[in-house]
Design a protein around this nucleic acid. Structure first.
Lengths: 259, 259
DNA sequence: ATGAAATTTTTACCTAGGTTAAGATAATTT
DNA sequence: AAATTATCTTAACCTAGGTAAAAATTTCAT
């Protein structure tokens, strides 16, 4: 089994943080999928309250996971990047309590939840790696809760931009500060619990300060150091040793600059 | 192995939703613990960033899980009720990215994370039950995110009060609407992303409307139906079939009342 | 290319909830 | 029981971010 480029490379790269994946284990993960589905952009693939008895892997594309209230307000729980498990809740429930919709054209590999349960029996180490991945996702949720509960609009925005950049990076998708960014300002608003108008004001603000630049579907993190400080960004919650080290260095290198 | 009252009954009751626990399995869970620790109230048992290589079960008492920013702001992630796993993250990391502190005098049963990994190998069904429990906790997190991002102060407060009541209930701890409530207004504020002053205003408001009554360490849900509607409470996220059914009934019984 | 639909930007105005501070109650300590 | 400390309550005032509406850009469908 050679090691050529694979749809699931972002997943493998991400999971490699937890266990050194053998080729056999990569194969096992790849074989989890029963059918690969190509999904157009802006399509709901899991709908809150509707039956959806499959788990998936978002192999290509970006998506959002959200919850809606009966009056139409919605909160985006997280942005799902390539190499993310989708609807693992299906091991427990047939009717998810959240929705998932693609932002871009995507590929989703679907599988029966029982295969995951089975995996945990047959390859507990790999099973644990999946659990650890969920632990990581949970930490992202917790940090988002901190943002919504405590941080100002500017801090929230700076924080989530760095987060996305780092999450892409640990999937091997983008090493630098120019992000492909298929996320509208309205989407960003629903993610951060703000209005689109205020997102616009705040983006402009960050741009004026030289912290970011942005345009059609791109964001450039112009000054990562100052962003890190602005957002009081502590990478611990991403559970990535390398990033922690780098962030620490970055922060100590730039001693006392302030906003 | 007889079935007499046990420290871990709330845990067993809660987990019974997922699997019919045999006495042997109850024993297995009880044997996870290596040492039971009695902890005074208002004591930090897990500290963000500090080494803590054990998992625990909060058997008795209430606690809070929180994250702090470097400038002292803190966000309470969740209130931990009796029968809750603590720091399962330790299976992955030695330095948790959150803190846990008791609210009341508590008993914590500590165990080595490896015993949990081992459990998943030796009794996969029980292992899955633990995973399902985490799935449930994650759903609570998601719903809190919806609250902080979308709901008004009044809605947040009403929502979290019902949630706590139902979470107690599914541990067999309190069937009714009078809650023992070792939670200060400041704590509530840090949980809901509001200030203590505004919590006070909002509590007064709910009291004036006859929705709740409150006093020294107690809250009484006076009118659960109207609270449910006020909060737009959808119990799905608690993953409890019985509650869903009851909430549905309650809501349909009270056709068109409005605030 | 052209018209319709989304998205982004800007302006003017408003309100939910924050801030500060001080007094009232209750719980703890000595 | 007096004194200290924490919690709760109230009031006066303020601001971050919401609302509404319209113009400027882009994108998309025909």
């Amino acid at each position: 089994m050679t090691d050529f480029a694979n749809d699931l490379d972002p997943l493998f790269k991400k999971m490699s943080r937890y266990v050194a994946l053998s080729n056999a284990q990569r194969q096992t993960l790849a074989n989890l999928a029963e059918r690969a589905q190509s999904v157009p952009k802006e399509t709901t693939i899991v709908e809150q309250g509707e039956r959806c008895a499959s788990c998936g892997i978002l192999a290509k594309g970006w998506a959002i996971q959200s919850k809606s209230l009966s009056d139409g307000r919605r909160q985006i729980i997280d942005i799902l990047l390539p190499g993310t498990f989708v609807n693992l809740q299906a091991t427990l429930l047939e009717n998810p309590d959240f929705s998932v919709a693609t932002l871009t054209e995507s590929t989703v590999h679907w599988f029966d939840p029982n295969r995951l349960v089975e995996l945990i029996r047959t390859d507990p180490v790999l099973g644990m790696a999946v659990m650890w991945d969920r632990t990581q996702e949970e930490s992202i949720l917790m940090e988002r809760l901190v943002s919504l509960g405590q941080r100002s609009a500017k801090e929230r925005l700076a924080h989530v931009l760095i987060e996305l950049q780092q999450r892409l990076e640990l999937r091997g998708l983008d090493g630098h500060q120019k992000l492909p960014f298929p996320v509208t300002q309205t989407t960003l608003a629903d993610l951060l619990g703000l209005t689109a108008v205020h997102i616009n004001r705040t983006l402009k603000d960050l741009k004026r300060d030289g912290l970011i630049d942005y345009g059609r579907n791109t964001i450039v993190l112009q000054d990562v150091n100052r962003l890190l400080r602005w957002a009081d960004f502590d990478a611990s919650y991403l559970h990535n040793a390398a990033m922690l080290e780098r962030t620490r260095k970055t922060l100590s290198a730039a001693q006392r600059p302030g906003a």
